[in-house]
């Protein structure tokens, strides 16, 4: 079964309906383009966060509400927008475990080791951007189902600039982690949408590409690929 994401006309940014076919034979769907081409707007529209009623069609027939809770996993450009900055790390771990409905809740110690943080009582607003991204990405990945057979609806994972703000030493780790995870969900109904700048990603020759112009006549490329390869 194949799915198509449909975002209705959303002026002044999108002045036409845009349809993005999801392809399960590819691990990643990249949204690439320069600043201002509408990558984030498109991603947020896909997730139904821009107020317009985007939807998902099964084989172009039956419509699925994009706002179904289990359907979306989102890491915004500023990870703080998906965390609770005024709460302590402890409270954030507790809440994210609940919100992502993680069966085996992540433990504080594991998160502290991952973030190299000293205390779980510190407020999340005091963490660096990179630490917040690691925290959120860990929860997003942990929340993905191990068995995709019984999946009722497809899951769309949107990562907005996952490599921005991450130190150079850790970027390859994230790159490998995403490659492993996404490829393990190949041919399943878990789709990874990655928003990045074209200058950062190497597009392999086999990649499939769609070009749309959302605004300002700047091209936005939707690239289907099986690997994230960062430019050195």
């Amino acid at each position: 079964m194949s799915y198509t994401l449909t975002i209705p006309k959303f002026e002044p940014i999108i002045n036409f309906e845009i349809r993005i076919p999801l392809d399960k034979t590819f691990a990643f769907h990249f949204l690439l383009g320069p600043n201002g081409c509408g990558k984030t707007v498109l991603a947020r529209s896909i997730l139904g966060l821009n107020g317009n009623n985007s939807s998902l069609y099964e084989d172009d027939q039956s419509k699925i509400s994009i706002e179904t809770l289990l359907l979306r996993r989102y890491m915004p450009q500023n990870p703080q927008d998906a965390l609770f900055p005024q709460f302590s790390l402890n409270d954030n771990i507790f809440l994210l475990n609940k919100l992502f409905q993680i069966r085996k809740p992540l433990e504080n110690k594991m998160i502290l080791d991952l973030l190299h943080a000293k205390s779980s009582n510190q407020k999340v607003s005091t963490l660096s951007v990179g630490q917040k991204k690691k925290l959120l990405m860990q929860f997003i990945i942990s929340s993905l189902p191990t068995d995709t057979c019984g999946l009722n609806h497809p899951i769309v994972v949107v990562l907005d600039e996952p490599f921005a703000g991450i130190d150079k030493n850790f970027s390859p780790t994230i790159q490998d982690m995403l490659n492993n995870i996404a490829n393990s969900f190949l041919n399943t109904d878990v789709y990874f949408l990655i928003i990045e700048h074209e200058t950062l990603i190497n597009i392999p020759p086999y990649a499939k590409e769609i070009v749309v112009t959302l605004r300002h006549e700047i091209d936005l490329k939707i690239v289907y690929s099986n690997n994230i390869v960062l430019k050195s």
Partner: peptide
């Protein structure tokens, strides 16, 4: 906790 967290960050509320 949900009551205070959704008030604390409404953008988060919309995401989750």
């Amino acid at each position: 906790r949900k009551f205070s967290m959704f008030g604390n960050n409404r953008q988060v509320a919309a995401i989750y």
